[in-house]
Design a binder for these strands. Structure first.
Lengths: 132, 132
DNA sequence: CTTTTTGCAAAACCTTTGCACAACC
DNA sequence: GGTTGTGCAAAGGTTTTGCAAAAAG
């Protein structure tokens, strides 16, 4: 597997992912891409999600629900997890301190720190409305 | 399941977890507790880890390896994941900004943020030494 | 005695993999 | 034609669950 050819299935998977701001699971990707390619298999979805992730075109994320979630936004950004409904959302917010955080952590850690991700938790907008 | 009755197995599981600064998987807990209770089953380990976690006595964590990891330290603290060997370590370090981070995030987020965890990644002390 | 917990084994679950065939260049 | 990708189905590994027996109070 030296040269990577961009199959339509792979393109469809990435295209779908780019339309979403939440972070769908493989299952969700599968169900949606199947609208366009009814014969696509779950295995193919997994293979391509892993491949895209290895190529750095998407991010593979792990949350408490134990499932893999996928994100087409590969820029460093923070995530939010709703403790009510399990939704995973982006947070478009970088603390001023974010840039210095790795250095600060390095100064108290014997190994070498190359990056970090912050996960916020709480109640998402939808659940806030519904719980009033 | 209203009243929670004491069990030695549950105590052994928590005791073991408190001796560890890394964040063992259920499998590791199982192998170690079995030294004391050779007949304990994996199912019991899982049940108790989930129960302890629900009671807030331990934390259940999810990492990229896809496995559940457990941590007897429930204070808010940050974690480090080694990209070489997969080790998960605590980082005893709180940024000055940590305390304000939730407020800052709340100001740009429609929902309600109640907390956060930062995951650092990089190369752990052991792997640094071995890769020289 | 009643309720909870255990051990065992089976089931459920998500993800990966092997293989023959199809698609691509 | 040779390589890469797919679909299908089976296998893999982790976690959960049903049930009868044991432990706890």
């Amino acid at each position: 597997m030296a040269v990577i050819k961009y199959s339509r299935q792979r393109k469809a998977i990435k295209d779908f992912l780019m339309t979403r701001k939440d972070h769908p699971t493989a299952e969700t990707v599968y169900l949606n891409v199947r609208k366009t390619y009814p014969n696509i298999s779950l295995g193919t979805v997994y293979r391509n999600l892993t491949l895209l992730s290895d190529m750095g075109e998407i991010q593979k994320l792990h949350f408490k629900d134990g499932l893999d979630h996928f994100d087409a936004d590969t820029r460093p950004h923070n995530h939010f997890l709703c403790t009510e409904c399990g939704a995973v959302l982006d947070i478009d917010f970088q603390s001023d301190n974010d840039f210095h955080l790795d250095e600060q952590a390095n100064s108290v850690f014997d190994g070498k720190i190359t990056g970090h991700i912050t996960y916020f938790q709480g109640i998402c907008p939808d659940c806030c409305i519904n719980s009033v």
